[in-house]
Write a protein that binds this DNA or RNA. Sequence first.
DNA 1: TTGTAAGCGTTATCAT
DNA 2: ATGATAACGCTTACAA
Lengths: 340, 340
Amino acid sequence: MSESESPANAKRRNPTMNDVAREAGVALRTVSRYVNGETNIDPTLVERIRDAITSLGYRRNLAAASIRPGWTSKMLALVIGDLANPYYSSIARAVEERVRSEGYLLTTVSSDEDGARHDQLVDRLMEQRIDGMIIVPPRAQTRDWDTIPPPVPPVVFVDRPGAFPSADCILADNDGGAAEAVSFLLEKGTRRIAFVGDGLDIFTIRERHKGYLSAHRAAGVEPDLESVFTSAHTSEQAADIVRRVVETESADAIFAANNRAAVGALMAFRSLGRRLPMIGFDDFEAAVLSTPATSVVTQDIAAMGTLAADTLLARLAGDASPARTVVLPTRLILRGSEAA
Amino acid sequence: MSESESPANAKRRNPTMNDVAREAGVALRTVSRYVNGETNIDPTLVERIRDAITSLGYRRNLAAASIRPGWTSKMLALVIGDLANPYYSSIARAVEERVRSEGYLLTTVSSDEDGARHDQLVDRLMEQRIDGMIIVPPRAQTRDWDTIPPPVPPVVFVDRPGAFPSADCILADNDGGAAEAVSFLLEKGTRRIAFVGDGLDIFTIRERHKGYLSAHRAAGVEPDLESVFTSAHTSEQAADIVRRVVETESADAIFAANNRAAVGALMAFRSLGRRLPMIGFDDFEAAVLSTPATSVVTQDIAAMGTLAADTLLARLAGDASPARTVVLPTRLILRGSEAA
DNA sequence: TTGTAAGCGTTATCAT
DNA sequence: ATGATAACGCTTACAA
């Protein structure tokens, strides 16, 4: 074992199974069995192998192992819009936790709601030979899944339905949750409820808008089309809208279709020193700190992630039952802001 | 090309480079050259190869390519405490963005501040042969880096210094930022400033506590040791502490050492209908919504992530200069809550 | 129980 | 410029 030509801390090559076998004086095969936790190995050899492994600092090369037939990377991917968005990162955390318990590593990537970038990431992930994917489809159009050449690993869509009919899908009851909130406001006697939210090209907003309308229909109240605002992409834009609504008294209540809209409404109320009854969709940190505390429709984001992971793991384990779409219930939490 | 024995949509094997070569009627070598974007290929063959690739739906197997000498996985890892924490997920997003532009895929994992789990994840990542890591060291003790057998890929520590002297490290000026905030309160005339935060075993809290003390020293004010609370692990716990402080009038101002503490203080103020001058460390969504808006010491989290990524990429590109520790400045943002 | 040898999908050397 | 052919580090029939 001459090491004359290299200093102690030089960049060393990764020791291989072969190195271990040579050092331990056994065959490659035996080391492989040991590493893979197989039984029936001569205890003497086990000891020699273990010693060789520690003395050489051997580490398995999972990438090399994964290319063998019947073996996989044991890596999964989660494709979301933006990891910096707490909504998505909560999903990511739940998924990570669940798949970790099954020995999977999770790679989370952000599509930035860009269709081309999304497709590019999916391609890269498939080239990396990940075992499966959980995807929040981007708002922008992606290519048709049928155009992707097989084999395509198992895919589960979350939060929004994917352009892939035969894949599992986990959604929240955006429609029903919004209807419940708006119905509540209508029962309280408000008649002109402003809908403040992002564009209707986003699935969740579209569904919440549907609920907004059906609640009106159910109550026999004509919805005021002038009060539907779908250009609140940021909380600042939402604040501007709400400020105008309050000032012109064009509505007597606010339904904030996502948490950015709700935050914007709070900003508007704050700067005006005046407020309207409001219910938001999606919970947010500041909700309990506002005065009055903000009522919201919540969804169990972690449960959504966990269920998506469960579904994917089941597929990986061989579940070949027909694809399911699961719609998770939402919950209306009244904290005070719904009152006049 | 008989496909008699399998239905159209059956689980197909991934086509290989060999399949492409056969289909195109060229040698394996030529396909490899084409795929790797090398020039000097007969245009006729190029066309045949391209056709074969699309007709077979060939996708590169990056895992297989990565095991060749001189090749790498082109995957990096980010190890943080908890992906669901907006502070960390912002770092993750910044890192992802930066390394993506260099062709790297980023795997983000959560250690949950658990030392053993952290070590386990690091091992798994190294077995997966990631090219480098960015690490937020967990609060709990991890093993000594010197005990990890070489070769160890380049590592950059973020937010907290790692137990690895010869690695790069990106920190925020926790000490200086806290000192600036506390000095400001002292100049305003408050004399008993409560320090509300998490345990001093956490590097950032320890540093902020240092700044708290040095500000007192600089102002010639004796810090009240009874007013240092380091058991606020959650915002609820912080709220309890602050409520007691306000009720007993044991302090005339609050320094909230992290955003959970600041949120807790706001909750306490809200329930009491009474408040104290306060400055927090780390910005948070509700800060601008509170009344008065909450003043905070902020750090540019995204910049921290980007710089960490830059540093790691430089190392991967061969930068062998001595390891550096960079301390990023913080900024005091006065919004009103600092006043009496 | 252990060893020998083939092969996974790729890249790279070296003749042609 | 192209084509056999040998690696890379690993798992696994198949032999011994």
